[in-house]
Computed example of a mutant assay.
Amino acid sequence: MTETLSDANFSELRPRLVRLAYRMLGSVADAEDIVQNAWLRWLGTDHTSVREPAAFLRTIVTRLCLNELKSARRRRESYVGSWLPEPIFDPEDGDATDDITLPLMLALERLSPLERAAFLLHDVFGMDFDDVSSTIGREAAACRKLASRARAHVAAARPRFAVGKEQGLKLATAFFTASRTGDMDALRAFLTEDVVVYADGGGKVATSLRPHIGLAAVMLLHEKLARVFSAQPSRLVHYAVIDGLPGFVTIEGGDVVQTTALYIEREKVVAIYCTRNPDKLQHIVGAMPH
């Protein structure tokens, strides 16, 4: 029997479809455009020929994302500085559909589009390989191989010692205080020897074009930043879980919105991800109180 799909039903499906598209593309705006395009295609489809509208929409979203990834990869080859996915806040109710964190998103970037799709659809969104096969147009056996290769690549990016939300935000608070007050001893105590700082300004705002790698380099960076913060303090907007990582949203230099996400293991900061590119923060700026 063919299911029908009302506007209300689609509204229920939409967050999961957007989340899938975002995991594929790393862009909130692109994900929303993809899902809207899928809905328009549904409206123009002979509904009597579709047995499962949800599966149909998931297939359309995945295929549109695969097409988009081809041009997205070309754009990223000429991207200025470090590329980070657009930051999103985790749902307040904690009912996230996956445990993909920002480091895992970066690991996904190193996969082929088909590996990425097979991994997300099977390992993250729980589809069996027969359904994955029909979605991406490859044999089920090939999909298993694609997902297996992807799994091996992303395994190293999964946190070995995951920090709980409450403890993570507590550490983010302490990190913010130490970094903004210039307490270098306290800051150093938070960092691992091989800590890395990534900053994404997209060539639109001032930021480091290359990652700062290692404790010495990161401490030198924060010593310079401490002088900047002393002259023009950061304005804290709020603390948040950003792409699965504890962090905070600030306004720097008077008008630059920035998200900072901290990858923490055993109560030590392994990596710091700062997004400053205004093109990637429009959805956050729009939701900020004025």
Rank of each mutant, 00 (worst) to 15 (best):
G201S: 08
A199W: 02
K268Y: 02
L215C: 11
A216R: 13
T207I: 00
E166N: 15
Q167R: 15
L245Q: 04
G168P: 06
F175V: 05
T250F: 04
S230D: 11
T259Y: 04
T260A: 09
A261W: 00
F176E: 09
Q258F: 06
P211R: 03
H238G: 06
Y239M: 07
G168M: 03
E223D: 12
L215A: 10
P233A: 14
F176N: 11
S208H: 12
F175N: 01
V237Q: 06
G168D: 01
G247W: 01
F175R: 02
D255V: 07
V256R: 09
F248Y: 12
E267L: 05
K268V: 02
V249K: 01
A217D: 15
F248H: 10
L191S: 07
G203C: 00
V228A: 14
D183N: 11
V196M: 03
L187H: 03
I213S: 11
F190Q: 03
L225V: 12
A240I: 05
L225C: 08
R235I: 14
T259W: 03
V205T: 12
M219T: 07
G214W: 08
T250A: 12
S179R: 14
T250M: 08
L225F: 13
T173V: 05
E166M: 10
H238Q: 12
L169D: 05
Y263F: 12
V269K: 04
T192K: 02
A206V: 11
M219Q: 06
K224T: 13
A178W: 04
V257C: 09
G254C: 04
K224V: 15
Y198F: 15
E193Y: 00
Q232L: 10
L215M: 13
V218C: 10
Y239H: 12
A240S: 15
L221K: 11
L187R: 04
F175S: 00
L191M: 13
H212L: 15
L215W: 08
A231H: 14
T192F: 05
S208Q: 13
F190T: 02
D194I: 00
R266E: 12
Q232V: 09
D243Q: 09
A174S: 08
V256S: 02
G203R: 02
A261H: 00
G201H: 06
A261T: 01
E267G: 05
P211D: 10
V256I: 15
V249I: 15
A189E: 09
A231L: 13
A186S: 09
L220N: 11
A216T: 15
A261R: 01
T259M: 06
Q167Y: 04
S230L: 11
Q258S: 14
P211V: 07
K204A: 14
T260H: 07
P211Y: 06
D200S: 01
F175L: 02
G203V: 03
L262V: 09
H222F: 14
M219V: 09
D185Y: 02
H238C: 08
E223P: 08
V256T: 15
P211E: 08
S230Q: 15
A189S: 13
L236N: 09
A261V: 01
K170C: 05
S234L: 15
L236V: 13
A231Y: 10
V249W: 03
V218E: 00
D243E: 14
T181M: 00
V195M: 05
T192V: 09
A189H: 03
